[in-house]
């Protein structure tokens, strides 16, 4: 059985819903730390891993990570990618104005890797193993982008 070729109307239907997320107890503590330019994580009482940003559960140990610990502001670039595209809202790709670096940064041997922008270095010169340090906004407000980026230490 065959289906006849037809043309269809293809109207664009944006579904823009608004959501209000509660960030919960642990991320709230993270952003409180930002107000003092501190990077906080939560430590698992089982495996002593530190989650950055902090969260309630260590899924491996099924334990609540109540203890908050402060992490150093300097760390190692463990892994990175250079972006040549940006993804806009709606998942559309467009070429980036200039290449930019995203890095997974290890602040402590026990800490999870933190994904952040790495600036102040030519993307072609970035190497895994580089030492990087946190750069804060001058005015910190306890918000996502207080910790602005990392740069070579």
């Amino acid at each position: 059985m065959s289906v006849q070729e037809e043309t269809f109307l293809t109207p664009v239907v944006p579904l823009d819903f608004t959501y209000n997320y509660y960030i919960g107890q642990y991320l709230t503590r993270y952003f409180k730390g930002f107000k003092e330019k501190k990077i906080l994580g939560s430590r698992c009482p089982g495996c002593s891993k530190v989650a950055v940003p902090p969260r309630k559960y260590c899924g491996v140990c099924n334990k609540v990570m109540e203890e908050m610990v402060e992490l150093p502001q300097e760390g190692t670039l463990e892994n990175f990618t250079v972006g040549h595209v940006t993804m806009e809202k709606g998942g559309r790709l467009s070429p980036a104005e200039k290449p930019y670096v995203l890095g997974l940064i290890k602040l402590d041997d026990k800490a999870s890797l933190l994904l952040h922008k790495v600036e102040g270095v030519d993307p072609s010169q970035v190497k895994a193993g580089m030492k990087v340090k946190a750069v804060w906004k001058d005015q910190v407000e306890g918000d996502y982008w207080d910790l602005d980026h990392f740069e070579p230490a």
């Binding site: 997320y21 509660y22 919960g24 969260r55 559960y57």
Partner: peptide, 12 residues
């Protein structure tokens, strides 16, 4: 409204 917890925290 559970304003005190995020989604996975509430489920846990």
């Amino acid at each position: 409204k559970r304003r005190d917890v995020c989604i996975p925290e509430m489920i846990s």
